[in-house]
Amino acid sequence: MNQHLRPDPVAFIDIAAQRRRLGRSIDEAVSRVLAHCQFINGPEVTELEAALAAFSGAKHVVSCASGTDALLMVLMAKGVGRGDAVMCPSFTFCATGEAVALTGATPVFVDVDESTFNMDVASLTRGVATAKRLGLKPKGVIPVDLFGQSADHDAIAAVAQAEGLFVLDDAAQAFGASYNGRRLGGLGLITTTSFFPAKPLGCFGDGGAIFTDDAAFAETLRSVRVHGQGSDKYDNVRLGLTGRLDTIQAAVLLEKLKIFEDEIAARNVVAERYARGLGNVVTVPRLAGGASSVWAQYTIRLPDGIDRQEFALALKAQGIPTAIYYPKSMHQQTAYRDFPVADGGLPASERLSSDVISLPMHAYLDEPTQERVIKAVRGALST
Score class of each variant (00 low, 15 high):
Thr193Val: 09
Ala215Tyr: 02
Pro197Arg: 10
Ala215Phe: 05
Gly202Trp: 04
Thr193Trp: 10
Asp206Met: 14
Glu219Trp: 00
Leu189Phe: 15
Asp213Gly: 07
Phe211Trp: 04
Thr192Arg: 10
Ala215Trp: 02
Phe217Tyr: 09
Thr212Gln: 11
Pro200Trp: 08
Phe195Thr: 04
Gly202Val: 03
Ser223Trp: 04
Asn180Val: 02
Gly207Ser: 04
Thr212Ser: 14
Ala218Glu: 11
Phe217Cys: 10
Ala216Pro: 02
Gly181Asn: 05
Phe196Leu: 14
Leu221His: 07
Phe211Tyr: 15
Asp214Pro: 08
Arg222Tyr: 00
Asp206Cys: 06
Pro200His: 09
Gly207Pro: 11
Phe196Trp: 12
Pro197Asn: 06
Gly185Asn: 10
Arg182Pro: 01
Phe217Asp: 11
Cys203Pro: 03
Thr193Gln: 13
Arg222Ile: 00
Ala218Cys: 08
Ile210His: 08
Ala218Thr: 07
Leu221Glu: 12
Cys203Asp: 11
Thr212Phe: 12
Leu221Cys: 06
Ala215His: 10
Phe217Pro: 05
Gly205Ile: 03
Gly207Ala: 05
Ala198Leu: 15
Thr192Met: 06
Leu184Tyr: 07
Thr191Val: 07
Thr192Leu: 13
Phe204Ala: 13
Pro200Gly: 07
Pro197Gln: 11
Gly188Ile: 07
Lys199Glu: 09
Phe196Ala: 15
Leu184Lys: 03
Gly207Ile: 01
Phe204Asp: 15
Arg183Ile: 08
Phe211Ala: 12
Ala216Lys: 09
Gly186Glu: 05
Ala216Thr: 05
Phe195Gln: 05
Gly205Asp: 14
Leu189Gly: 02
Gly207Glu: 03
Arg222Cys: 10
Phe204Asn: 14
Gly208Met: 08
Asp214Ser: 02
Thr220Gly: 04
Gly207Arg: 04
Gly188His: 09
Ala216Arg: 11
Asp214Gly: 08
Ser194Pro: 03
Ser194Cys: 08
Thr193Ala: 03
Asn180Glu: 10
Gly207Trp: 04
Gly186Tyr: 04
Gly205Asn: 14
Leu201Thr: 01
Ala209Leu: 01
Ala215Asp: 13
Ala215Leu: 04
Gly205Phe: 05
Gly185Cys: 13
Phe195Val: 03
Arg183Thr: 09
Cys203Gln: 09
Leu201Lys: 06
Phe196Gln: 12
Phe195Asp: 03
Thr212Glu: 12
Pro197Asp: 06
Lys199His: 07
Gly186Cys: 09
Ala215Asn: 09
Leu187His: 01
Gly188Val: 03
Leu189Glu: 12
Leu201His: 06
Leu189Met: 13
Phe196Thr: 11
Arg183Asp: 12
Gly188Pro: 06
Glu219Phe: 00
Phe195Trp: 00
Ala215Ile: 02
Ala218Ile: 05
Gly186Ile: 09
Ser194Thr: 05
Arg182Leu: 05
Gly202Arg: 05
Leu201Ile: 03
Thr220Asn: 11
Ala215Lys: 11
Ala215Thr: 10
Ala216Trp: 00
Arg182Val: 03
Asn180Ile: 02
Thr220Gln: 14
Asp214Lys: 13
Ala216Phe: 00
Asp206Trp: 12
Ala209Met: 03
Asp206His: 12
Leu221Pro: 05
Arg183Trp: 09
Gly208Leu: 08
Thr193Tyr: 10
Leu221Val: 09
Pro197Lys: 12
Ala215Glu: 15
Leu184Ile: 11
Leu201Met: 06
Ser223Leu: 09
Asp214Leu: 07
Thr191Phe: 02
Leu184Ser: 04
Leu184Ala: 08
Thr212Leu: 13
Arg183His: 15
Leu187Trp: 02
Ala209His: 01
Gly181Val: 04
Thr192Trp: 01
Gly181Thr: 00
